[in-house]
Simulated scan of single mutants.
Amino acid sequence: MSATLETAPTEYVEAGGIRFAYRRLGSKTGVPLVFMQHFTGTMDAWDPIVANSLAADRPVVIFNNAGVGTSGGKTPDNVDQMATDAENFINALGLGEVDLLGFSLGGFLAQVMAARSAVKVRKIILAGTAPKGGEEHLMEVVQDAFSKNAPDVRLPLFFPPSDASQAAARAFVARATVRKNDRDPESGEDVSNPQAASIIGWCAEQDPDHASLKAIKQPALIVHGSDDTMFPSINAYEMFKNMSTATLIIYPDSGHGALFQYPETFVAHVKTFLDA
């Protein structure tokens, strides 16, 4: 029986002086799909439906970037260094050509990595993310979510308040907490503070001609929630308009965690995109 997100052993590889923790799912042949996670997220914050379903017919690699979870090193306070760390990890595994799935902060990394040549990137999926100079409300939204004292902060943080969305939110949290053994520790301020600085810095860095987006030549699938309060959907439209080969999908009644609210739909869209 092949490994799942809930059962795959945590492995380690040294790269650039950092010991990276990762898990492999799926087949050993095909272009690997590398997952890059959101603000403070670890390997165990991914949705098992998304990870396991995408691993049904391709290699999937999930990892903790520097300083996060069970990985060593120190979390950088800028996107460029985070992207360099991710490139070092991918090269250390000898993955060759890869596809990238970047969610939120991970989407910033995917944009940087696609535009340069340290790793051979075939296609990218950008979920709930923003371009350089994009609109962000990270601290305001996070503070508001914590003020609601929900059983899990992701319920108000990633999902709108509608009954249908909150039902999907509870189902996601249940799936994402199944793994008990060898589970990543939750992130503390040594992760959240530099990651927040990197997000705020990325969005504060103006790119009026969208040169960073125009430098991305790979096919891109942009997926966003209709009511993403952290990175409003105008970000997705700006990326779509300024990338040469991008497709844009916006899911209804959904927020920052749209890919976890509609996991089966998201997987179907990603598979169609990657297989085309």
Score class of each variant (00 low, 15 high):
77 D>K: 07
64 N>E: 15
47 D>T: 01
91 N>I: 02
54 L>C: 07
98 V>D: 12
86 A>N: 10
91 N>T: 04
88 N>I: 03
40 T>R: 14
59 P>D: 13
62 I>V: 14
29 T>E: 15
61 V>K: 13
54 L>N: 06
35 F>A: 01
36 M>Q: 05
44 D>T: 05
98 V>M: 14
72 G>M: 06
43 M>A: 08
83 A>N: 08
81 Q>E: 14
35 F>I: 02
68 V>K: 02
102 G>V: 03
32 P>R: 11
107 G>N: 02
65 N>P: 11
112 V>A: 12
99 D>A: 10
61 V>W: 12
104 S>F: 01
42 T>A: 12
31 V>M: 04
60 V>T: 07
40 T>S: 15
68 V>I: 14
94 G>K: 11
81 Q>H: 10
79 V>L: 04
65 N>A: 14
52 N>H: 06
88 N>W: 11
106 G>V: 00
61 V>D: 12
57 D>H: 15
82 M>G: 08
41 G>V: 04
105 L>Q: 02
83 A>W: 09
73 G>M: 05
44 D>I: 09
62 I>S: 02
67 G>I: 12
46 W>V: 00
89 F>G: 05
96 G>M: 09
71 S>G: 08
77 D>A: 15
86 A>G: 00
102 G>I: 01
102 G>R: 02
67 G>M: 13
36 M>H: 03
32 P>N: 13
88 N>C: 10
53 S>K: 13
29 T>S: 15
82 M>L: 15
62 I>E: 02
111 Q>C: 07
32 P>G: 11
37 Q>L: 07
76 P>R: 14
106 G>N: 03
70 T>N: 13
104 S>Q: 02
72 G>Q: 05
59 P>F: 10
94 G>L: 07
54 L>H: 04
38 H>D: 09
82 M>Q: 13
105 L>W: 00
46 W>I: 00
66 A>P: 03
88 N>S: 15
35 F>R: 00
35 F>Y: 04
44 D>M: 09
105 L>Y: 01
81 Q>A: 14
75 T>N: 06
52 N>Y: 05
58 R>P: 07
36 M>Y: 01
33 L>T: 00
93 L>Y: 09
45 A>N: 15
109 L>Q: 15
96 G>I: 07
28 K>D: 14
51 A>I: 04
91 N>A: 03
103 F>Q: 01
42 T>D: 10
29 T>G: 03
38 H>G: 07
108 F>H: 15
55 A>E: 00
97 E>F: 02
37 Q>M: 09
64 N>L: 09
67 G>R: 10
72 G>E: 05
41 G>F: 06
45 A>V: 07
79 V>C: 02
33 L>N: 03
57 D>G: 13
56 A>W: 03
100 L>C: 08
108 F>Q: 12
86 A>F: 06
89 F>W: 10
92 A>V: 14
96 G>K: 11
110 A>P: 00
100 L>V: 00
111 Q>W: 11
56 A>C: 01
53 S>Q: 13
76 P>F: 08
29 T>N: 12
64 N>Q: 13
34 V>I: 13
47 D>S: 03
31 V>R: 11
